[in-house]
Amino acid sequence: MNLVLRLVAALLAVATAHAASLSVQNPLLTVTGADASQLRSESPETVKLGPSDVLKLTFQVAEAEGGKGVQPHQTFLRFSDEATGEEGVQPVRVTPGGKAKFELNMARPPASLPPTTTNPLKVSLILGSFVHAPAQYELFDLYVPASHPPPTHPDEVAFAPRPEITHTFRPEQRIPAKAVSAFFGAFVFWPWFVLLGFWYEIGPRVPHLLSPHIVPFVVSLAAFEGLLFWYWVDLRLGQVLLYGGILAIPSTLAGKQALAKTSEWRLGRK
């Protein structure tokens, strides 16, 4: 498939090379001012038009060899502003003999004339034909009075890039001064002194704390607290639930035993 395409392209290239090319002959340019003053030129580089000047352009399209006039099936004048990218294309009528005439009246400009600034409009002639090679001629630079800037497309608002979204975040939380934190941190500890002081005064007696019935229960409770502390430091939820579940079994047994013993003591004392 690809090969076929390439082959066709190559054949076409050969064909165009063989085809006769077109040329523009007798270009004549006339600018008629508002005061009827005329300026004629064969091939000027730049043309300046006032707000009410009229530009007339005549030429003949002919074969490069032989000079026989031809009528190309497409003839356009293209006005393009290279700075802004605005452009307008105006078809030009050509007689069967190849003669063409174009008139640009600045008082009533054609719709194809693009909006302009002070930059020049490049005017080029584009010719297309079935039998001849296509041709494009840069004619001249045209200076026309500046117009209003081009109107914006109604959808442009919708599809234009939006200003970047800037997120507003909550203000960063104020962390109090270290000294204040430290002071309160120390302050939290003083109830401990109150507690220990009172306990010292009351003097609780724990006669059975170290008896073999009680120790396992106390140890398992301490283990639970240790496990939870470990959870805070390191463990994940699943692990702590697993370990806690395992630990719960011996603690329950130890607790049952310890509390049964205690209740025995209590009732015995009574």
């Binding site: 707000p51 605005e86 307008g88 400009p109 054609p110 719709a111 004339l113 693009p114 909006p115 302009t116 009075p145 500046a146 117009s147 209003h148 081009p150 109107p151």
Partner: peptide, 10 residues
């Protein structure tokens, strides 16, 4: 319809 000219003269 007549094409609308984009150009508006000052």
């Amino acid at each position: 319809s007549k094409p609308v000219a984009r150009r508006k003269a000052i």
